[in-house]
Design a binder for these strands. Structure first.
Length: 582
RNA sequence: CGGGGCGUGGCGCAGUCUGGCUAGCGCGUCUGGUUUGGGACCAGAAGGUCGGAGGUUCAAAUCCUCUCGCCCCGACCA
């Protein structure tokens, strides 16, 4: 492609509103253009990168035995009603009504496609002989995000690869899951991303049932904990926090003292009023676990994790208790609950074990106790891991320190179980003529996020640094003076030869000064820059420079096309050769 | 949805507090010329209902009211 014939609107300055590198660079490098909040046009260059990512995804899905199809984005609302997800998605589900002849038709734009694919399988699959089956598509998804942000990282319309596996047994599901997991590793390896596969919320199946593929980035929306020591990684919701080594325990010589704390119903307010640190306080949260009130004790500076609490209690549903329930259980308004004299079951996080002489709510309006001691002033029913992990917490595997890092979620694999197959009657007959719901897994990749995460983590001060696998073009051919006949003659010939050799070449044939071309070349980040300029041309040489290397090299013009094509091919092969899973 | 910020030629901004003549600057664009290895120079030109509506005033980019949009923090995120 010749630059002058396509649309690559590079920008010298950062557009107002773009802050994070991937957003800034997508706009400045002419990859994308914003239409409105959360909706972007992919310009020719950005689209090429997106298509590259798509192709890698498709190749690896096919290799893993998944079968591609394409479902409508437009779906009947009834399908979502059958699984209860109209409510579950709430405002995120984009719904609308249209008139067809005399009827109102209620539609939804698919935010994901479990319903559609399960309904499809229900129609056509009825025997164990047809399973296992993994279906996938690459399609635009729609979610009415409450707050689209971070440029192209969180948008209301995005390209997603979604795959769904259907199996006859849990073993089968595990096999399908592992295939997808390995395919994901290959995909992200080939895309040149540094990622972590982290344990994520497991849902109804339990155990090791969900992994998120995370790219560490300061601007990521998600948080993961990572142990540099043993490699343990998990998302914030899932990360286990092991019990710490028990300290000898300070002498519990403090007396339980009731103190006035008028209108101080928060950890922050009480700590300020009493001059104590939040870590010296015990936070008492009253939850409704399947409608029964339960007290959960946490160190004042820790955050409750409702998923962990739900699992620890073995409850189906856990939520913070309503103010009336709290008042009834504690005899005090919200903010003054404490374990002393409390009659409901008391659970405590491991880190409360060692606390002595803590500050706790007094179960009375505007009052707290200081010097509360477990075993003397109150008892804890059971200890468990009930809180979010934080920076510096002990690693559950090796005891080392966990680091809390921001990350961009680029993929998610999940063992679903039978939730959708039951709701939508996707059943099969087994060899004993018994009817069972198919056991499902679902597997998603945000294709746009591959591009955004790559730019976010692999740019430098001059612009994007594409890996060969995702680069919109492999070679940028830059004749430095388009009015000089020998230069343009050589450039045109090289362009033709490279194109014929199957190399994706972008020729900067604009009548611009060399400085402009060099700056733009760095900005758009094409891997190999080939310069045809008077200086080296008079010695019969061309200049080659890899985007990620500092120094340029020269090669003879004679035979240059073949040499460049070979270099490009070697670089293409490298991405395949470095995947983790061979 | 709560809090904060911002809307002025294609892009980045000044001007707004303290109302005043023809709304400026840099980049980009167009014409002509000189240049040609890291965002050139000279001369000329085009391009703006100052986000929108209403109001105050002799006079509004500027003050007031409403409204739309964008960005950031938070809440939310199958």
């Amino acid at each position: 492609m010749r630059w002058s014939q396509t649309l690559i609107p590079t920008m010298k300055e950062t557009p107002e509103g773009a802050e994070i590198p991937s957003h800034v660079l997508m706009l400045r490098a002419g990859l994308a253009s914003q239409l409105m909040a959360g909706a972007y046009t992919y310009l020719p260059l950005g689209l090429r990168a997106l298509r590259k990512a798509e192709r890698i995804v498709r190749e690896e899905m096919d290799r893993a035995g998944a079968i591609e199809l394409h479902m409508p984005a437009l779906t009947p609302i009834q399908l979502w009603q059958r699984t209860g997800r109209v409510d579950a998605f709430g405002n995120v589900l984009i719904q609308f009504q249209v008139k067809r002849q005399n009827r109102q038709v209620h539609l939804a734009l698919g935010p994901t496609h479990e319903e559609v694919v399960t309904d499809l399988v229900a129609r056509y699959v009825s025997s164990y002989r047809q399973l296992p089956l993994t279906l996938y598509q690459i399609q635009t998804k729609f979610r009415n995000e409450e707050r689209p942000r971070f440029g192209v990282l969180r948008t209301s319309e995005f390209l997603m690869k979604d795959a769904y596996s259907f199996d006859t047994s849990l073993d089968g599901l595990n096999t399908s899951y592992d295939k997808m997991y390995r395919a994901y590793c290959r995909i992200f390896d080939r895309c040149g991303l540094d990622y972590l596969a982290v344990e994520a919320e497991s849902g109804p199946i339990g155990g090791d049932a969900s992994h998120e593929f995370m790219v560490l980035a300061d601007n990521g929306e998600d948080s993961v904990v990572h142990c540099a020591g043993c490699g343990y990684a998990a998302n914030l919701e899932r990360a286990e926090v092991g019990p710490r080594g028990q300290s000898a325990g300070a002498a519990a010589n403090a007396a339980l003292t009731k103190v006035d704390t008028p209108r101080a119903g928060s950890i922050e307010a009480v700590s300020k009023m009493l001059g104590c640190r939040p870590s010296e306080m015990i936070k008492t949260l009253i939850y409704s676990a399947d409608e029964n009130p339960v007290a959960v004790l946490l160190r004042g500076d820790h955050e409750a994790n409702e998923g962990k609490i739900r699992r620890a209690l073995g409850a189906a549903k856990v939520e913070l208790a309503a103010p009336e329930v709290i008042a009834q259980a504690t005899g005090a308004p919200v903010g003054f609950a404490g374990p002393v004299g409390l009659k409901i079951p008391i659970w405590a996080d491991h880190d409360v074990t060692d606390m002595t002489a803590a500050v706790v709510g007094a179960n009375a309006d505007d009052a707290h106790f200081t010097g509360a001691v477990r075993g003397r002033d109150f008892e804890v029913g059971q200890f468990a891991d009930l809180r979010n992990a934080g920076d510096g917490d002990p690693c559950p595997r090796c005891g080392g320190a966990l680091a809390l890092r921001h990350a961009i979620e680029v993929g998610h694999v999940f063992k679903l179980g039978t939730k959708y197959s039951e709701a939508l009657s996707a059943r099969f007959l087994d060899e004993k003529e018994q009817l069972h719901p198919a056991i499902m897994g679902c597997y998603g990749i945000g294709v746009n996020r591959i591009i955004a995460a790559l730019i976010e983590t692999k740019h430098d001060e001059n612009g994007v640094v594409w890996p060969m696998s995702l680069a919109p073009y492999e070679v940028l051919l830059a004749p430095l003076n388009v009015n000089q006949q020998d230069v343009m003659g050589a450039a045109n010939q090289l362009y033709d030869e490279l194109t014929r050799a199957g190399v994706e070449v972008l020729m900067d044939d604009r009548d611009q000064r060399p400085g402009v071309k060099f700056k733009d070349a760095d900005l758009i980040g094409v891997p190999l820059r080939v310069v045809v300029g008077g200086r080296s041309l008079k010695d019969g040489q061309l200049e080659l420079k890899w985007r990620w290397k500092g120094e340029a090299e020269t090669i003879p013009l004679a035979g240059a096309a073949a040499a460049i094509a070979a270099l490009v091919q070697a670089e293409r092969d490298l991405a395949h050769a470095t995947t983790r899973d061979q």
